[in-house]
Design a protein around this nucleic acid. Sequence first.
DNA 1: GGTATTTGACCTGT
DNA 2: ACAGGTCAAATACC
Length: 319
Amino acid sequence: MESYYQPGCLPSNRIKAIQELTEGQQLANKLREMLGQPEKVECDCKSVDSIAVQILGMFDNTLSILNSYSFNEYPDILTEATRYNTSSLDYQKSQNCGENAKFVRSEKNKRGCYKRRGNSSTSMKITSSLIDDGYVWRKYGQKAILNAKNQRNYFRCTHKDEKGCRATKQVQKTNDEIPKYKTTYNGYHTCKKSHEVVYGISDSLDCSDNSLILDFKTNTLIENKQVGLFYHSSKQISKENFSSLGLSQEQCSSSDNYTASDPFTQLPDVPLEPMSTISSGLDYEDMIFSGVFSSSSGTQGYEIDMFGSYDVGDFLFQL
DNA sequence: GGTATTTGACCTGT
DNA sequence: ACAGGTCAAATACC
């Protein structure tokens, strides 16, 4: 069994995982170096954040790779698959289904055959209107959800194919009288350059950001400045990115006061607020979430970020 | 003709 | 068995 792991004999995904971890290690060292020089961190907090987000992305990628199959099993599957003259994936499937398995399609024709993400990082945002998060999304499905009036919509990053970006999001209109949009992000964007936004929609890295982070672990409010190092930078919203929310270019032609047809539910149109008017204020009593909550102290509208959090040494990594 | 969306099928997890 | 998530053929749009 060990012989499979000799150099040159490693499964490609294992190599990929090792590469991700090695790169992450280098970046972590770089981060450590930068954090050892506080004056450097102060004037270049965005690159510190960028590195942190890259590291998180690497964790995520590695987890995804590791979750896709067991390395210990893989070589066996390969050899068995070869023996049966079929693809390893088909073989896996036939193994799962047993002797009475249905007809096993070729890998390309297998519909709905996928690995559900298990441990990828997620965040959730509830907004009063559809907003642009700066990414281009492609809708790949919609589904009626139990006890929900409105269908849930599924989007993946447009760059999934060309850059292997694994980020996805789900958008669902709530049942409330005044409908809100619950957006759940899964995974990290790996399609952007390091100095650009890497993570979904959380927008608060600006060092001048005075918003607050509520850490439910410690029940303390922390100035975003303090933890902002681990967020990506805020980003100007571009018109074309509204297409990710199912809006046509025509509908996005004006950034002011436009109304979007509702791509999610066929319910009456909901006015889309220009990004500039969507402040991220909210009432704290609305927040009954675990994890880390990020908010600014505005009064218009509401925008909720929910993150899981990882404690890694002295750092609080938000996911 | 290329790209995006729709939608039924099919898979996984509970 | 059921609910939810994803795939991919069909269709729509530019």
